[in-house]
């Protein structure tokens, strides 16, 4: 599904990613952990195609296609979804209008007509029930005045609507109480199948109790410095990151 080879990326001539190698196969769940500022969100943004970041070396392949030249929306059309660490406000645009526009833009890219209103409503109802989202919430301006938890739940709602091939969740668990965490994890688990993959970026073991990873990677200083199974997450939870830093710097 996703293959990243020796990826280097910088912003304003400052190198942030410094040689990332990662392979994610269909059906897998990968967790990326690591201290603040290590480059996790940058990696997510670069995969999603944010232009601000310049890829200076290396490649990203999606299903064996080099996606370097693709614009962010084209990557989205190919099934990449990013749940933002800090979702953006768009005043005056309702959650419903936004997701409707997104769905139809993706359909258009596939040569399909707009989704009939009836089907759209049905889909929205189904997915909002899955994520226990109140109907009134759907007519609010996108992310405007949302609590941290509402923002994250809305991201997962959009993910559920768009049914991506590769979902990247950037600290989706932060700001969620335990109930919301369970609901969100449930939404992600519903999406999981042998045909798609999930990358979970998190600080905490907590979320990984619900979305169980096949692999755990530690990102530090722009590189993946350690990889392992789900037990690595437990170890990090217990011991923190200092021992990793020491290992790397030794």
């Amino acid at each position: 599904m996703l293959k990243i080879e020796n990826l280097h990326a910088s912003v304003e001539d400052k190198a942030i990613l410094r040689g990332i190698n990662l392979e994610v196969k269909a059906g897998e769940v990968h967790a990326i952990m690591g201290p603040n500022g290590s480059g996790k969100s940058t990696l997510a943004s670069v995969i999603a195609g944010k232009e601000e970041y310049e890829v200076t070396e290396g490649s990203i392949f999606l299903n064996d296609e080099d996606i370097d030249e693709l614009a962010a929306e084209e990557r989205a059309h190919k099934g990449i979804f990013l749940s933002f660490q800090y979702p953006i406000e768009i005043p005056g645009v309702s959650v419903t209008n936004f997701i409707k526009t997104a769905i139809n833009a993706n359909r258009k890219a596939k040569g399909l007509d707009d989704m009939p209103a009836k089907d759209m409503l049905k889909l929205i109802r189904e997915k909002s029930e899955l994520l226990e989202i109140d109907r009134k919430f759907l007519s609010r301006s996108l992310n405007e005045g949302f609590s941290g938890g509402e923002k994250k739940r809305n991201e997962i709602f959009q993910m559920a609507m768009l049914e991506p091939k590769l979902a990247i969740l950037d600290e989706t668990d932060s700001g969620l109480d335990i109930d919301a965490l369970r609901i969100v994890a449930n939404g992600v688990n519903k999406l999981k199948s042998k045909d798609n993959a999930v990358i979970v970026i998190t600080h905490y073991q907590r979320l990984l109790d619900y979305i169980v990873p096949d692999f755990v990677h530690v990102l530090y200083n722009g590189r993946i410095v350690k990889s392992g199974g789900k037990e690595l997450a437990h170890e990090l939870e217990e011991k923190g990151y200092d021992w990793i830093k020491e290992e790397v710097n030794a």
Partner: peptide, 23 residues
């Protein structure tokens, strides 16, 4: 804002229209 829309599959032109309409 534009990147957020792009990431959801909405191209820049349409993203601006959406943002302006919201405004």
């Amino acid at each position: 804002q534009i990147f957020y829309c792009n990431q959801r599959g909405i191209d820049t032109e349409k993203a601006i229209a959406l943002i302006v309409n919201g405004f």
